[in-house]
Each structure stands twice: as C-alpha cells, then as structure tokens.
C-alpha cells in the first residue's frame, strides 16, 4: 500500500559532529517530488545519505508503512534509488555497462529491455557505447540518473541531479522524474540549488539551514522573503511571472548581520 514517506525527528552526523538536528517533514505523498533546498553546508547531501541508508541516523523514517532502513542493504537497494552528488570521471566502463551493472545488481534479471528503455528516455543512445570517462559532466550526470531510473525504485533520492545540465535538460530531468514517480506511486526527493526550478516543478519544498529544517510545505508557503533572508542571508522578493508562477528575485546580501561563511 502506498502511503508515501514519513520523516520524523531525524538526526545524524559524522562521528561526534552532529550535522542534522531533528528534521521532521510533513508526510510526502506517493507520486510527488519534494525539493530539498538550502544554502551551502545546510546538510542537504547528508540528509540524502541518511534516507539512502548510507549514514546511521536517529528518528523515524518510514516508506509505505515500512521502516525500510532496517532491511538488508541488498533488499533496501530494490526500494531506494540514490544518485550521489558527483559521478566519478575516471570510470572506463561503457555508459551502457554501468547502467546494465546497476540493473543486474538489483534485479538479477538478464533482460536488457529496461536498460535500453532508460537510454532512450534520457536521449543517451548516442553515447551509450562510449566510456563514461569520455563523457561531458552533463552526460555523466544523466548516466548516473539512468542507473537510478532503471531500477524503478519506490523512493528516488537525487542529490543535485541538474547541477551540470543545461536549461533544457534541467527541466527534462524533472519531467522524467515526475513521470517515474507518477507511474509507480513513488516518492522523490531532489536536492537543487536553483530555487526557481524547485518552486516551478516540485510539489513540496523543504528548506534546510545549518542542519535544521527552516520551512517545509508547498513552494509558495516554504519559500518566502523571510526564509530567504534567514536561510540564504539575502534580501529577496517573490513575484509572480506572466504565467502566474512565483519567481525569486534576489536583491542583495543581508547587511549588518552574520553571514553564513561559504565552505
């Protein structure tokens, strides 16, 4: 039964250093995309790793009624698809092999059709038989996304999947992710830096700052001038574009207050 994802009081860190503090989100519904946004070093990638089961955490994380992190890593891999922030540039695997490997590892199937389908979906057929090391950063990112999509997971965790993509493919990727979650009643969390992209194409937005949840909810409620001032330390306006969508217009850094240092 699809109930979506419940996240309550999640805390985590690296050794003694606590990075995430009691994160609680509203229930994330099946078939939806939630953008995880925030300034640098807000804890977004750590949050994704926790949900992927790659980092131990406290709190409650439940997908469709099941505490899936209790599963064995291989059983969990059938449910959760995680795209890390960076894909190694040095892999000599062919793009096709890297996706085939991800598919075989989780499904055990010999069927090549899902692999071919995902290459078609992401318009990667022309580079499928080239080594990953020879691809541009954007294409590598799409190959990483293909490794996730081919597994048809119920929870998609994509850490900055659009950072190396041009404008068209930023939109295409979010469209493809939406199709994937809607078809399978899956839940997607996507880290993005572009707040306008998040507001335009995601159903929910969670704002993190210094490891704490600053706001969460529908884009127009979560992203406000106040959130932008507190989280990003910028004076900004939110106005509606000609199509009626909210757009953030940043004016200047907040003066006279402590600015969060860049890492």
């Amino acid at each position: 039964m699809s109930e979506g994802l419940r996240i309550r009081d999640v805390s985590a860190g690296y050794g003694p250093r606590r990075v995430l503090h009691d994160i609680t989100l509203p229930q994330l519904q099946p078939g939806t995309i939630t953008a995880v946004v925030g300034p640098n070093a807000a804890g977004k990638s750590t949050f994704m790793k926790v949900l992927a089961g790659l980092l131990p955490s406290g709190g409650e994380i439940v997908l469709n009624g099941e505490a899936y992190l209790q599963r064995s890593p291989s059983a969990r891999a059938k449910l959760v698809g995680y795209l890390p922030q960076s894909i190694p540039a040095g892999s000599g695997l062919l793009a096709y092999e890297s996706v085939l490997g991800a598919y075989r590892m989780t499904s055990g199937s010999q069927d090549a059709e899902p692999v071919e389908r995902v290459f078609r979906m992401l318009d990667l057929e022309n580079v499928a038989l080239r080594p990953v090391s020879e691809l541009s950063g954007g294409k590598r990112q799409l190959v990483g996304l293909a490794q996730v999509l081919v597994r048809e997971p119920r929870l998609l965790l994509l850490d900055e999947p659009t950072s190396a993509l041009d404008l068209r493919w930023q939109i295409e990727v979010l469209r493809i992710v939406r199709e994937a979650v809607e078809q399978r009643d899956a839940v997607a969390l996507v880290c993005v830096h572009d707040i306008n992209l998040a507001m335009r194409f995601c159903d929910m937005v969670a704002v993190l700052s210094e490891g704490r949840l600053l706001a969460a909810g529908p884009p127009s409620q979560a992203i406000t001038s106040e959130t932008l001032k507190t989280g990003w330390q910028v004076e900004a306006r939110i106005e509606n574009c000609s199509l009626g969508y909210p757009v953030v217009l940043a004016d200047e850094p907040v003066r006279g207050e402590t600015v969060v240092p860049m890492p």
Binding site: K49, A52, L54, S72, P73, S74, A75, R76, A77, K78, V80, G81, Y82, L83, P84, S86, I87, P88, S91, G92, L93, E97, S98, G101, A102, M105, T106, V132, G144, Q147
Partner: peptide, 14 residues
C-alpha cells in the same frame, strides 16, 4: 563492476 561507478553508487546498490 559497480564499484567503478563510485563508492556511494555501489553502496546504494546494496
């Protein structure tokens, strides 16, 4: 083979 796609990706594959 999966390890060649990076440690994080390999770990997420179980």
């Amino acid at each position: 083979t999966a390890m060649r796609s990076g440690e994080a990706q390999a770990a997420s594959l179980g």
